[in-house]
Nucleic acid binder design. Structure first.
Lengths: 226, 226
DNA sequence: ACGCTCGGTATTGTTGACAATATTAAGGTC
DNA sequence: GACCTTAATATTGTCAACAATACCGAGCGT
């Protein structure tokens, strides 16, 4: 069961975290119509905070709510995941460009260190798939915050990444190309270290584009259904 | 006073609409620390739906909420508005490209008709500034929905445009170049009509870039303060 | 036998009261 | 006189009961 993030500020935040992780991890299935009282008993909440959390989830597009008809988790399709990658391509391209212009030298050093640890983890091949995904999120997370563009970071970290994670869990879609991705990450960081925003943007767009094409290939192979 | 949208489905939706318009139009000033009970009496609501609406507004970044410390409308700066335009540039560029690939011929015809009416309005110069802004939103709105990218449209229509409108009201920043903008709009629609996605994206990016530079110029002239 | 209408039931939406916490001001001490 | 401590207050967070609405099944009509 998805537990609350340690010491959530308020009950509503707790409910929000619980539900978000439950939806993202697929604990709440797609299209699942679920009652409020059931959610309350399941997560030890009362309806007040729960409803507040439901509203936030709804406005983020993770679930849909018809008046007096209950809430149901949003249904997903592979084609929608591809659309998400189109958005990531342009937004993270911008993030990389601005990160190249604005990240501090220290942040860039940390970013490189992050990649080093990713490389070590991949070569040890321990907990591969899981860590690969987490490392990927870590990398993109740092670039988003490094852009110093508050709204951009908010949209990426608060909306898109959760969406992508949800789709990946639902469709059991892991990137599945760790070494390639790591090399692409390295080149992006190089461009950032050289303060070459244009190049960083280009490389990031190509990186995400490659990931999208990888998913498209799986669809063609019938591994994923549209 | 900002009234509820006619026949909101639920009290919480009503509260959300009221507050959103109140914030966007500047009826609730920036940094204004305002109590829940005051909001209730002001908009004829009770605290339950209000709190639900506050949560939605918070997750959209229109106001900030510290536990037990109340809510305050987000403070804005001109530099943040510029960052918003950077995001718009890449996202609406994508929207234009996808719209060129996916809009129906009928939608394109409607889009052109929309521009015709804008032109007529501008030449009559009646209610210029207001209509200019509304027409601009109408244009960008149609392209966002025409992209057939649900999440992209949601982010543009549900988040970014409200943000931009808020900043514009707060900073009294109207675009102030109606004829230029109309010409740029026409070229974008031409590209879409020719199903030239690449060109549509390029033109849209340049269009928004020009609007951003216009704001930057105002900042340099001291009209806007950072 | 099938479809439609109508009422019961369960769920959601809303309300008001209760409890917990941050802010504010006053008082005391250094 | 300035700073810290402490208590009163007002505001927020939470909870449980009430009202409104949609869903579901039974009864009736065709």
């Amino acid at each position: 069961m998805a537990e609350a993030t340690l010491q959530s500020q308020t009950r509503a935040d707790e409910a929000f975290d619980c539900l978000q992780t439950a939806i993202v991890t697929g604990e709440l299935g797609p299209g699942e119509k679920i009652g409020e009282l059931e959610l309350c008993s399941r997560f030890n909440l009362t309806r007040g905070p729960l409803r507040e959390a439901l509203g936030r989830l709804e406005s983020r597009g993770l679930l849909v709510r018809r008046p007096h008809a209950g809430v149901k988790v949003v249904s997903v399709s592979a084609s929608e995941l591809l659309e998400l990658y189109r958005i990531r391509e342009v937004m993270e391209g911008l993030a990389a460009r601005q990160a190249a212009e604005r990240m501090t030298d220290e942040e860039i050093a940390e970013l490189q260190a992050t990649l080093d640890s990713h490389e070590a983890m991949i070569e040890q091949a321990q907990g591969q798939a899981y860590y690969q995904a987490e490392g990927d999120y870590d990398f993109h997370h740092r670039i988003a915050t490094g852009s110093r563009n508050a709204k951009l970071a908010q949209m990426l970290l608060g909306d898109l990444y959760y969406m992508v994670r949800m789709y990946r869990y639902r469709l059991s879609t892991s990137a599945g190309r760790p070494h390639l991705a790591l090399g692409e990450h390295r080149r992006i960081v190089e461009a950032i270290a050289h303060r070459d925003g244009e190049l960083a943007e280009f490389l990031m767009k190509r990186h995400i584009n490659a990931a999208r094409q990888n998913i498209e290939k799986k669809i063609e192979e019938g591994v994923l259904t549209i």
